[in-house]
Design a protein around this nucleic acid. Structure first.
Lengths: 201, 201
DNA sequence: ACACACTATCTATCGATATAGTTATTGGCA
DNA sequence: TGCCAATAACTATATCGATAGATAGTGTGT
């Protein structure tokens, strides 16, 4: 169900084609919510059927059209309702942490490689997320620019603050993953080469 | 595919029925990997068909039997291979952070409730995870006791250390979620009631 | 003898995701 | 003019996962 609300959220910043939405989910918004186009097109049609959005054929070059979707009043109401509803917490399903729990089954070098990949991945994430957050705060991120255009000045600070807040959370989480993996490398060292006997008197 | 390896991991500590596995995923192991029984029974049959596990009919009371599965050599090899393989990182899909990004659409009181629920959930998680981790370290957790029984003494320290390490990671993550939500409450306060004009001279 | 909670297994269905395509058009560049 | 990347839209398939059941035997207590 969340894809639906992710799409409604995008549409509160103005009309989009399915292709536009797919691009967003592949770009900056995709760091919080990702979806492939094969999910987006059918979902948009379902949402139109449910009256949450309207599709309009707009010109695309001289001899073709594309479908541009706009949020309806019903869509806005549904989005507002969802925004006021606490979400359930999905049961954990974390393959990376599960794998680490059984490192005694891995070669130490492979375990190290696994943790290095983890660090690498989240280091990239931190960079990407930080860039997006800074772009949001500076008002240069294209998505936020487009959004602010649709809202009065006095709401801009709030809109920016909540988005930056979300990205701050994602950044903290990524940094926590890096810290965890670094600790794991130390643990692997500790468990691999035997402890030197103490030379204390 | 990860359910398969989660099941193999469980089976490296001894044979299990589908019901046993379902109980584990509902219990302490379930904090890292959860699966409903409706997924477990068919997956076990597929794994048997693939030669990773063997099923044996064992007596259950005077007039019934149950199927107990044991890991095969092929299963051990497959698990070891997986344990040496870095996993892909799934694209983000975080409804809670996404929702927070659009808090300007929520009533401030509802947004606060949402964050309070978040704090409540992860506070419970921290308690549960800490209890499990301490039980692992103390060697009282039933799952770890059963596992250690199957392995020589000199491996016990490693087995315990990696499992405690995993739970430490989950605990840190849960605490990070709590911190994030607490910051969110402060932000909501800041954004809701207007800043008093400074009375500085 | 019966109630009842627990153990054990299995099925059906729906929606969500991942993967991998196909088809066609546009707009810019060589 | 022809090529090509990007745009646009859609399809097909498979697996995953959530939810809600059905069915039946076991062990305990009354």
């Amino acid at each position: 169900m969340s894809l639906r609300y992710a799409l409604l959220a995008l549409l509160t910043a103005g009309p989009l084609t399915g292709y536009d939405a797919a691009k967003r989910f592949g770009g900056s918004v995709g760091h919080v919510w990702h979806a492939p186009d094969s999910q987006i097109y059918p979902e948009l049609r379902r949402m139109q059927k449910d009256g949450l959005i309207e599709g309009e054929q707009v010109r695309w070059g001289p001899r073709s059209t594309k479908t541009q979707y706009s949020i309806t009043d019903d869509g806005i109401a549904a989005f507002r309702t969802w925004m006021n509803t606490p979400l359930d917490h999905a049961p954990e399903r974390d393959a990376h942490h599960m794998q680490a729990a059984y490192f005694e089954w891995a070669d130490p070098d492979h375990a190290r490689e696994i943790l290095h990949k983890h660090i690498e991945y989240y280091t990239t994430q931190v960079e990407l997320l930080t860039a997006v957050r800074d772009g949001i705060k500076a008002g240069t991120d294209p998505a936020i620019v487009r959004r602010l255009d649709h809202y009065p000045q006095h709401e801009h600070a709030r809109i920016i603050a909540y988005k930056a807040y979300t990205y701050d959370g994602m950044i903290s989480r990524s940094k926590a993953e890096i810290d965890w993996a670094v600790k794991g490398l130390a643990l692997l060292d500790e468990m691999s080469h035997p402890v030197e006997p103490s030379t204390h008197p």
